[in-house]
């Protein structure tokens, strides 16, 4: 690994058009740890933060650095998007081809792979995720959990160096959730995970960051308290005295 962090954000601010105040303000962040967990309340700007990293949103102010150099043109952005894969909060938005194999091969084909090579990569990626035999399935008829795994396959087929995962365990049953965790643990990739699922963040060994009031900061170790008992309103990260 090079000394430069893969991604660095400097003084990033973002304001949605027609909105009253900025969602992110003077935000500084760099990918120092291999596994990063991002927490924060609903609507605090977590998804926005990811969209800025991959250039889907252009920050109103500040710089986006990739391997230590500012992104200035489309080609560099394309390199970044190749190395940083983004798993959407909603897999329905991510799968658009009629069949699974076409969807997984879509990225490799765009990267210039031959049809044979793209197909081979797609089949191998599906196999790696335990999705053998899914090739000809119709994407919009998959179950929610299957969609999530196929969406992950579409990203892994592009052989990224880093994964951005937006609430990956949302709506997964316990079994699929465990399967996803073991898949992610088995990948030798940088990962930034947005999640309200504390156990999941713990199991993927993530350093926690919190987005709050437009800033992101690393959570102090002594405030982090991962616990596995059930809360009545436990999907929001919380601190308490015990």
């Amino acid at each position: 690994m090079s000394k430069q962090p893969l991604i660095e954000l400097r003084n990033i601010s973002y304001l949605y058009p027609h909105s009253t105040g900025p969602i992110l303000e003077n935000l500084n962040f760099s990918t120092q740890e291999k596994h990063i967990g991002v927490i924060g309340s609903n609507g605090c700007g977590k998804t926005t933060f990811f969209q800025i990293i991959v250039g889907l949103l252009t920050p109103t102010a500040g710089q986006l650095l990739f391997h230590g150099k500012e992104i200035k043109d489309k080609n560099r952005m394309r390199d970044l998007r190749r190395e940083v894969g983004f798993l959407f909060q909603n897999s329905d938005d991510q799968l658009f081809s009629p069949t699974v194999i076409e969807d997984v091969a879509f990225g490799p084909l765009n990267l210039g792979y031959s049809q044979t090579a793209a197909k081979k990569t797609a089949i191998e990626t599906l196999a790696k995720l335990g999705l053998e035999g899914f090739e000809e399935r119709i994407t919009h008829r998959l179950s929610g959990g299957e969609k999530k795994l196929v969406a992950l396959a579409t990203i892994l087929a592009m052989e990224p160096k880093m994964l951005l995962l937006d609430e990956p365990t949302n709506n997964l049953d316990p079994k699929t959730r465990l399967r996803l965790i073991s898949i992610l643990q088995g990948l030798d990739l940088h990962q930034i995970i947005i999640s309200h699922d504390w156990d999941f963040l713990e199991q993927t060994g993530s350093t926690l960051y919190r987005i709050e009031d437009g800033h992101i900061h690393r959570c102090e170790e002594d405030h982090i308290h991962v616990h596995s008992h059930i809360h009545k309103a436990g999907d929001y990260p919380h601190r308490h005295g015990h």
Binding site: F88, F96, L109
Partner: peptide, 24 residues
């Protein structure tokens, strides 16, 4: 909204306006 998110997903996977078919 959904169509624009799908379009974003396509762009992130290197789509530039040419749809390349899997079977030649």
């Amino acid at each position: 909204n959904r169509a624009s998110r799908v379009h974003q997903a396509m762009i992130l996977r290197g789509f530039d306006g040419h749809l390349i078919p899997l079977s030649q």
